[in-house]
């Protein structure tokens, strides 16, 4: 079942078109990455999904129903610009945000405290928000996004500003939630993070989708069919092999691009039969980072 269907949504501010007819579908239990350079329209798209901004045109369906206010309780949203009431105590604040998601005051309190315990900040429950470091405030915001057990979680740049330890902690919890069937959308410009985490990606540039789909397929589609070989001996023959399209030879290191219909395995056989001491053979996949830069720069 589709957790979310976004159908041709557009948004124009005065004379600036922030989002142009964006569509995508998201299966339940998947982790979806919304990628794109700064100002591409990621945040506007997310705000439209949350009905914080109403699209000029297009429709959004959540679990088969047209999105309405009642759905907000089933979604957890972590905006990029995060904020808390500085004068409130952490415990009270979590309780308030939980109640705003339709939890009973009692549930909001116990579950909030349980999460604070898990995040190792139970001893600070009665401290005021303003007494906390930015990183700890982010943890509170993260708890408030997930404490009401939403079926869909939307996070705008969740890793920004987190130290490596906490970034790993956040990643582990996200994967745990995904394993329990929660659908997750996150926007990021950290490509290696997206590459490791996401099942599907959607790349937005200038308000339009320029690339989308299953991450493995995207990477395969954009694979450059490159192979790196490190060797000793006479390797001059490599560049003249018929399967080689282009090459870059350094004497004992060669970067080869094969023709699209040939595979690295064929080159491996060729090398094995030759009188060559191969120390390293690596079929390189294009990184998401590379794809991202290529596509965005091409535009």
């Amino acid at each position: 079942m589709n957790a979310l269907v976004v159908e041709n949504i557009s948004k124009t501010y005065d004379d600036f078109q922030a989002v142009k007819s964006v569509s995508f579908e998201l299966q339940e239990g998947k982790l979806f990455g919304l990628l794109g350079p700064n100002g591409a329209g990621k945040t506007t798209t997310m705000r439209m999904i949350m009905n914080i901004i109403v699209p000029d045109s297009g429709n959004i369906y959540l679990f088969g129903e047209k999105f309405n206010e009642l759905h907000k309780n089933q979604v957890g949203y972590l905006p990029e610009e995060r904020g808390l009431y500085p004068k409130m105590k952490l415990m009270d604040h979590l309780q308030f945000l939980g109640e705003m998601k339709g939890m009973s005051p009692k549930d909001a309190k116990t579950i909030g405290l349980r999460w604070m315990d898990r995040f190792g900040m139970l001893d600070r429950a009665k401290r005021k928000v303003s007494e906390l470091s930015k990183g700890l405030q982010q943890k509170i915001q993260f708890i408030s996004t997930i404490m009401h057990e939403p079926k869909l979680i939307i996070m705008d740049e969740p890793f920004s500003g987190l130290d490596p330890v906490n970034a790993k902690f956040l990643k582990d919890i996200l994967l745990e939630l995904k394993a329990s069937g929660t659908t997750i959308i996150l926007s990021t410009h950290l490509m290696d993070q997206a590459e490791k985490l996401c099942d599907e990606i959607c790349l937005i540039s200038n308000g339009q989708i320029v690339l989308q789909g299953d991450i493995k397929k995207v990477k395969k589609d954009h694979s450059l069919n490159n192979v790196i070989v490190e060797y000793s001996g006479n390797g001059d023959f490599i560049k003249s092999l018929p399967m080689v399209k282009t090459s870059d030879d350094y004497g004992n290191y060669i970067d080869v691009q094969l023709h699209d219909d040939r595979s690295p395995g064929e080159l491996f056989k060729e090398l094995a039969s030759a009188d060559l001491d191969v120390r390293r053979f690596e079929a390189t996949e294009a990184s998401l980072n590379q794809i991202f830069i290529d596509i965005v720069e091409k535009k």
Binding site: M50, I52, E69, Y77, P79, E81, R82, G83, L84, M100
Partner: peptide, 17 residues
Amino acid sequence: LEEKTSRIIEVLLSSSN
């Protein structure tokens, strides 16, 4: 103004209108 400058407004808008 406090809700706006502390940027909590967007969190609130994701739970209510």
